[in-house]
Simulated assay, not measured.
Amino acid sequence: MSIVRCPLLIGVVGPTATGKTAVGIELAKRIDGEIVSADSMAVYRLMDIGTAKPKPEERQGVAFHLIDVVWPDEEFSVASYRRLALEVISRILSGGKVPILVGGTGLYVKAVVGDLGIPEVPPNRALRERFRAEAESLGNMHLFERLKAVDPVTAGRLHPNDLKRVIRALEVYELSGVPLSQHRSLKCGPGCDVALFGLTMSRQALYKRIEQRVDEQIARGLLDEVKSLLEKGYSPDLPSMKGLGYKQIAGYLRGEFDLDQAIQLIKRDTRRYAKRQFTWFKSDPRIQWIDVEDKSTSEVADEIVTKVKMTGLITEKLGSA
């Protein structure tokens, strides 16, 4: 049966290795959804094995967004993510589908579904000095035109020579990813309701999954992936190259420790990361937790659909095939 929906975003969050992506794919197939990744490492191109991106054939025809966005040496901030995520979510909703936010990067999830009514954007002295230098070398109109491009509403009420306010508006946009004019009305998409689900399991089971995943990544060629990145000139000091798996394998390739030590470090650091993720998401009372330890991916997806139906946000259209 087809499903009639209110404007809705569903979030599938939780620690690494709990099966979020697989559940997201099954859920998308059931409710005509598209996946919006909330993984700070999946945004990087050329980094596939260590980030556990699903292969095209594993996506089963489900559309994925915000993976392979930038090269490993490009800057990509939470503000950048929020700006792109809100644009993608709005497009998905406009197309009559359900955006499914899937990932374990807490800041990314919060950027989309957190309390963003009037975010505090503290002054950034270095950024302001950079803007002032641009105004001195290129003129006030240069900054004003930049503001018009990203926040025409605010630009429309400012004079080009009101440099202080022009710089502040640019600063807010640069640091938050949201135009100053939209801060008071920012929502998750146009009138979008949010249902958040967290996947969990016993610590023993989770740690076993983490160890299995790391072993699988090594078998799939993580060593060659990191070696290829280094050969392409990507520095091990880049933020992207300090991600789990990449940092430790790069250390092995530089002779800092042997391969077995590198693998054990990946497993240890991933366990620690999973613990931090769980702590982060547990602080959000909106998340409905599902113990997935003894459930199949399909069973978890069905449970999420059932729980959302109970809220009245989705209903089945009677009489449909």
Score class of each variant (00 low, 15 high):
G33W: 06
R30I: 02
A52D: 15
R132K: 13
L101S: 04
E316F: 12
S176G: 07
L175K: 07
I287V: 15
S37H: 13
Q212W: 14
R132N: 13
S181K: 01
L107I: 11
S202P: 00
P56I: 13
A205H: 01
Y273R: 06
V4R: 12
Y108P: 07
R59I: 06
P119G: 12
H65V: 08
L230F: 08
E75W: 02
P99M: 01
S80K: 11
E171N: 06
Q261Y: 00
F278S: 03
A205G: 01
E211Q: 09
F76M: 09
R213I: 04
K275A: 10
S235F: 14
V78A: 11
L230A: 09
D32L: 14
G50I: 02
P7W: 14
S137N: 10
G243K: 07
G11N: 09
L9F: 00
I118S: 09
Y234F: 15
P236W: 05
V36C: 01
F131V: 00
I118C: 08
D48V: 09
D48Q: 11
S137P: 03
A149Y: 05
I118P: 02
Q261L: 08
R45P: 04
I25K: 01
M141P: 01
E58I: 07
M201T: 14
V78D: 08
G177Y: 04
V178K: 04
L186N: 07
L186H: 10
S2G: 05
P119W: 04
S90V: 03
G245T: 04
L8W: 13
Y173D: 09
G33F: 06
L238M: 00
H159G: 08
L186M: 13
I167H: 12
S298K: 12
S40D: 03
S181V: 13
E211S: 15
E299V: 13
A250M: 03
T51P: 02
G95Y: 06
L180V: 10
G33L: 05
L163M: 09
K232V: 02
G95L: 15
V194A: 10
L196R: 04
P239F: 01
Y273T: 04
D237T: 14
E231I: 10
E299Q: 13
N124C: 10
V150C: 01
A135V: 12
G319C: 05
L143W: 00
L27V: 09
E303F: 11
L230Y: 00
S202V: 03
L86N: 07
A133P: 07
S296L: 09
P123V: 15
T315D: 15
R59W: 04
V166A: 10
G189V: 02
Y173N: 01
M141D: 15
R209N: 11
P239Y: 00
A22I: 08
L318P: 03
L229C: 06
A135K: 12
R5I: 12
V308E: 09
L230H: 07
K242E: 11
E75D: 11
G50F: 03
W71H: 10
T21K: 02
V88M: 10
A52P: 05
V121Y: 01
M241A: 02
S2V: 03
I10N: 04
V112H: 05
V70L: 11
C6S: 15
E26Q: 13
Y44H: 15
I290G: 02
R203Q: 15
L46F: 15
T270P: 01
R272W: 12
R271W: 06
I67L: 13
T279N: 08
M1S: 14
V178S: 14
R276S: 12
R165L: 11
R271S: 12
T51V: 08
P15L: 05
N140W: 06
